[in-house]
């Protein structure tokens, strides 16, 4: 169980990992996430279930290397097992009966947004996807997203693919052009500032906007309270009350300052791990004897 069956580098530092997890696959729905640990020394890292295959009993994770723990996870090879893998956690996405939705994916957000877009497309909703990345080589799953969309717009910061600029521009255009008010909802998943600005963009149009918050987590089951966020002036726990929330009600500054809590320490750990020469598994063997 929790064996890595397949690992592919989709783009620089972005890995697609297919994991054997029959019990999780059986219950997984769009919007669910898992918590994983690379080894006995690892952090508990939340990752969205980007796809699942109930028949094969597998789930697909897509992870960007941003720090020590994601780096460590990315070093696990096919055939290795996660030390821990739990899920499916959180509320699944609520797939509402809408005429048209706009899905905005920033960077690695393309993965978690895909199963939601697909669920909308399968129920007959017209899906417009706006996919953004820093540059062309960081784009992935464009074909998958295109296959479930009536319209698929790509933006890059440097113009190396699609339009030059930010995802909020095509988003605003879509809403402005929607004179018949057919767009019943917007989803924005990606880096926190991107989600914040998407929510700001849709606010004047009064279109319900769902964001998937990535607060720092430990247990993922509502026990620790570390993942708390302020939404509509109330404190909620991302892992059990979310991870999807009304983007117009999120206190973004509070979320971002909580995400920065371990900035210095994580930076140090990342540097240390980048420099660590031995392959991960040998480290585990070496260090196993020390474990109490």
């Amino acid at each position: 169980m929790s064996t890595i069956l397949k690992k592919t580098e989709l783009a620089s530092k972005i890995w697609q990992i297919e994991v054997e997890a029959p019990r999780i696959a059986e219950k997984a729905l769009p919007g669910h996430f898992v918590v994983v640990m690379a080894d006995a020394f690892g952090e508990r890292v939340p990752l969205t279930i980007a796809d699942f295959d109930r028949q094969a009993g597998t789930i697909t994770l897509v992870m960007m290397v941003v720090g020590a723990s994601s780096l460590k996870l990315s070093r696990l090879e096919e055939g290795d097992e996660f030390y821990a893998l739990i899920g499916p956690l959180g509320h699944p996405s609520e797939i509402k009966p809408l005429d048209r939705v706009v899905m905005v994916a920033g960077g690695v957000g393309a993965a978690p947004i895909f199963p939601i877009a697909r669920a909308y497309q399968q129920q007959g909703t017209e899906v417009v996807t706006v996919q953004g990345a820093r540059s062309a080589d960081l784009l992935f799953w464009t074909d998958r997203l295109a296959s479930v969309s009536v319209e698929h717009v790509i933006t890059t910061d440097d113009g190396s693919a699609g339009r030059r600029g930010l995802v909020t521009e095509p988003l605003a255009e879509q809403l402005a052009a929607d004179s018949e008010k057919r767009i019943g909802g917007v989803y924005a998943i990606g880096p926190t500032p991107m989600m914040k600005f998407c929510a700001k963009t849709t606010e004047p149009f009064c279109v319900p906007t769902v964001v998937s918050l990535n607060s720092i987590m430990i247990d993922g089951t509502g026990m620790c309270g570390g993942c708390r966020v302020t939404v509509a002036k109330k404190t909620l726990f991302t892992c059990v009350d979310g991870p999807e929330f009304d983007g117009h009600q999120v206190d973004w500054d509070s979320l971002m300052s909580r995400q920065r809590t371990y900035h210095t320490q994580e930076g140090f750990a990342f540097g240390r791990m980048l420099a660590e020469p031995a392959p991960l598994n040998e480290n585990i063997l070496l260090r196993q004897n020390e474990e109490v």
Partner: peptide, 29 residues
């Protein structure tokens, strides 16, 4: 919800279960 404000469950779980007192040997800060 300011940074540096913990609920005891999180603080103690980080330290006891995740061994944050032994960071960076353990990855949890």
């Amino acid at each position: 919800n300011l940074g540096g404000v913990y609920l005891a469950n999180e603080y103690l779980t980080r330290v006891n279960l995740m061994r944050a007192y032994d960071f960076p040997r353990y990855d949890t800060p």
